[in-house]
């Protein structure tokens, strides 16, 4: 049963990745694209966690943690750039 659930979940999350990717390409404004990227990061974390459960390997957790940290920093830096026109002040 767990395998079926993981396959269903992988399909749904892949669809979510496709939708965010569509928004990333479509725009129309810069904040929209940053938001799409942020959603992509979170969806990637979901994919990695599911893969970890599917392969019963705890190794994927570290990758998920790194993506969470880097994704947040990236989003905030991009927003900062939009707000100030400069990242490092």
């Amino acid at each position: 049963m767990l395998n079926i659930a993981v396959v269903i979940a992988l399909t749904l999350v892949s669809a979510a990745v496709a939708l965010s990717f569509w928004r990333l390409l479509r725009g129309p404004s810069l904040p929209d694209r940053i938001l799409a990227l942020d959603t992509l990061y979170v969806n990637t974390i979901a994919l990695l966690i599911l893969l970890g459960i599917h392969l019963t390997s705890p190794l994927y957790f570290e990758a998920a943690l790194l993506i969470a940290v880097m994704g947040f920093v990236g989003t905030v830096a991009a927003c900062k750039y939009l707000l100030r026109g400069d990242i490092i002040e």
Binding site: A16, A46, L50, I53
Partner: peptide, 30 residues
């Protein structure tokens, strides 16, 4: 069963979030 339920619920919510991102009309609602 509980784990399977959590996995499917989580995936459905992740999907709905992205659906909102793709579907809604202006940035603030997205």
């Amino acid at each position: 069963f509980l784990i399977s339920l959590l996995i499917v619920t989580g995936a459905v919510f992740a999907f709905i979030g992205s659906l909102g991102l793709a579907r809604l009309k202006d940035f603030y609602t997205r």
